[in-house]
């Protein structure tokens, strides 16, 4: 177990190194002019001043030197200052991540619970009308773009019905110290719902397949031969044999969750990490963009890592090797 974790950590280090090199080189190759994005548009700066800024930031040195000096400060925990927010990148990411994690976490739990239950219902009723109906809905949902579902949900629940706010994570026009938890939750419901709507279908369909395989297995046949009722089989064998793959799949789907949150946060103007990533890209905030790339890689890696760990803890076949 310990050696497994050490191996994983080494893998994480090599992954992050690769991510750093890739995004750094990509940004260097991109048409973003770091001097221009630093001084901002509309400010008249003479060519000499530009040259001085470039010299000051070390932009004239070679790619390797720039990467190394960036890398050194990253290792020290200095991710630079965000050009949009005029604050250290690390504090921006921390703040945005905190609001995103609540959104993603809620959506994640919702999609796990709904997806797994629907999967069981479909599998147990294989090819019956109930299964066909739910399956069609799942296929429809999983082939629907997230942003479109978001817009639709907004139109129905916020604009037409007026049940929920149309955007943001807190009510506008009041001091941040006056924001209550209930306000935050209220603002989070629609984005979380949208995010889980598009992701539970995959879990449900996956669980359905697994349920069907288990129900056709020899051991379920034998359980029937021993007089176990359908309910006893579901409780005794079915859940036991289908829950692990579902949990694993959910942890391994962190990347899709993060990708989905970028779109959902954009549609709902929800100030989370996804929106910050979009803003950083659109407004050439290089330090923030690099920082988000590194942290999102870490986030996705953690998901996969937990999936592995959970598998090892729950599945006896893996645990004891």
């Amino acid at each position: 177990m310990v050696s497994k974790i050490i191996k994983k950590i080494l893998r994480l280090i090599s992954l992050e190194l690769a991510v750093c090199i890739t995004v750094f080189v990509l940004i260097t190759l991109s048409p973003i002019d770091p001097v221009q994005s630093y001084v901002g548009a509309g400010v008249a700066v003479s060519p000499e001043q530009r040259e001085n800024i470039a010299e000051y930031w070390g932009l004239n040195s070679s790619l390797e030197d720039r990467f190394l000096s960036w890398g050194k400060s990253i290792l020290k925990g200095d991710f630079g200052t965000s050009l949009i927010y005029r604050r250290p990148v690390i504090s921006v990411i921390y703040e945005k991540f905190a609001s995103s994690i609540a959104l993603m976490g809620t959506a994640w739990i919702l999609s796990s619970l709904i997806g797994y239950s629907l999967g069981i219902i479909m599998g147990v009723n294989q090819d019956k009308p109930l299964d066909r109906i739910i399956k069609s809905i799942c296929i429809l949902l999983s082939s629907t773009p997230t942003f479109w579902v978001g817009l639709l949900v907004l139109i129905v629940f916020s604009v037409n019905l007026g049940w929920f706010p149309i955007g943001l994570s807190v009510p506008s026009g009041i001091l941040s110290s006056e924001v209550r938890l209930i306000d935050k939750i209220y603002h989070m419901i629609l984005p979380a719902l949208t995010l889980s709507l598009t992701s539970f279908a995959a879990v449900a369909l996956h669980t359905r397949e697994k349920v069907i395989t288990v129900l056709e297995s020899d051991y379920v046949l034998f359980a029937k031969a021993r007089g176990e009722s359908q309910m006893e089989i579901i409780q005794g064998h079915l859940i036991r044999n289908t829950i692990i793959p579902t949990i694993t799949m959910q942890f391994a789907s962190f990347s899709e969750l993060f990708g989905g949150s970028v779109l959902v946060e954009q549609v709902f103007s929800y100030p989370g990490l996804g929106q910050a990533a979009v803003q950083a890209g659109l407004r050439s905030d290089i330090p923030l963009l690099l920082g988000i790339a590194i942290f999102s890689a870490l986030f996705v890696f953690l998901g996969n890592f937990i999936a592995d760990l959970v598998y090892g803890l729950v599945d006896p076949k893996i645990k004891e090797i």
Partner: peptide
């Protein structure tokens, strides 16, 4: 089934893994 008639199946795949 299971009460008055018992089956002894033929392989380990009949056991819940």
């Amino acid at each position: 089934r299971g009460k008055k008639i018992a089956l002894v199946p033929q392989s380990v795949t009949y056991l819940d893994p």
